[in-house]
Each structure stands twice: as structure tokens, then as C-alpha cells.
Amino acid sequence: RLLSSPIHKIYVLLGYLVAYFLLGWIQLGVLLTVLSVFFHVYLGNVIHILVFGSFVIGLVVSLGFMIATLSHTKKQSEVFSAIVIVGSCMLGGIYWPLDIVPDIMKKVSLAIPQTWMMSGFGEIMSGTVNQSILLLDITVLAAFTIVFMVIGLKNIRSY
């Protein structure tokens, strides 16, 4: 259908990106609602959550896009996703706090997007937001997003 369609591939790509971005917001919205309503977790300033959450979702969508364009089969993308996501979550402080890891691992974690995501959400949920820390977290997430998107765009195949 794409070959016979008069639409340019950039519009198809933008459609997918917008759809997955909205889907990500639905998922994050449900998660935050459950945390707030059922577990009484203090989420901090809603505006900060909306802005920072948008950068996190943009990062996740661009990472998925990059993995999809680097993979040749669906099975390969599933395996690649599992390895990249689980490995980076371990290194980025999702599974355990970075306070308990050796100093070398703390330095390695600076090259992992999840480290910056956890830092930003932690800053927002602390109740006392340091704007410079949050801005640094957003800037790093935006840089990762751009890098992943550029890699994905360079590897996209025309069918």
C-alpha cells in the first residue's frame, strides 16, 4: 500500500511518531493516575510533569524508531529492544539506586538516558524543583532524542 500511495514517506513517519507519542501519553497518564489515586504518591507540579513527560516520551519514541530501522526482522527488533532496554535500565538506575553502585558505574550511567529521566522525575517529585537540574535533564534527554532520531532517519529503508 505504501508503494502505491501518493503520500511521501516523511508524512507516514510523522503519522507514526505522533500516534506513538499520544499512545505514550495515555500510558504515562494512566501510570501517574494510578500512582496518585491508589498509592498516594506525590507527583509534584503538574506542569513540570507534563513538560518533562513529553521529553521522556519523545525519547522513548525515537529510541523505538532507531531500533526499528536498525533491525531487519521483527524478531531481531524484539531481541534488540530487550537487550537495549534491560541493559540500559540496569545501568541507568531504574532497577536499583545509583547510590549503591561503584563510582565507575556512576560515570557510565551518565551516558544512559534513563539516568537523566530518573533524575528529572526525582527532582519534580521532590517538591523543591531546582530549575537548573531539571533544565540539564531536559537538555540531555532532548540530545539523546535527536541522536536516536538522526540514526533512525539515516537507516530508514525505502520499500
Rank of each mutant, 00 (worst) to 15 (best):
S4Y: 12
I7D: 11
I10E: 11
L13R: 15
L13N: 11
G15I: 12
Y16V: 09
L17H: 01
L17R: 02
A19N: 11
F21Q: 01
W25I: 05
Q27E: 08
V34K: 05
V34S: 07
F38M: 14
V41F: 08
V41M: 03
I47Y: 08
I49P: 00
L50Y: 09
F52Q: 07
S54F: 01
V56E: 13
V56T: 14
V56C: 13
V60T: 11
V61L: 04
V61C: 03
F65I: 06
M66H: 03
L70D: 02
S71A: 13
H72L: 01
K75T: 13
K75V: 10
E78M: 08
V84I: 13
I85E: 05
I85N: 08
I85P: 02
G87W: 10
C89I: 01
M90G: 00
L91A: 12
G92T: 00
G92A: 05
Y95N: 13
Y95C: 06
P97R: 15
V101Y: 14
P102N: 02
M105Y: 14
L110T: 14
M117W: 10
M117E: 12
M118P: 02
S119R: 15
G120Y: 10
G120L: 09
G122V: 03
M125L: 05
M125P: 10
N130S: 07
I133K: 14
L135N: 08
D137L: 06
L141K: 01
A142W: 05
A142Q: 04
I146W: 04
I151F: 11
G152C: 04
N155W: 15
N155E: 15
I156C: 02
S158V: 12
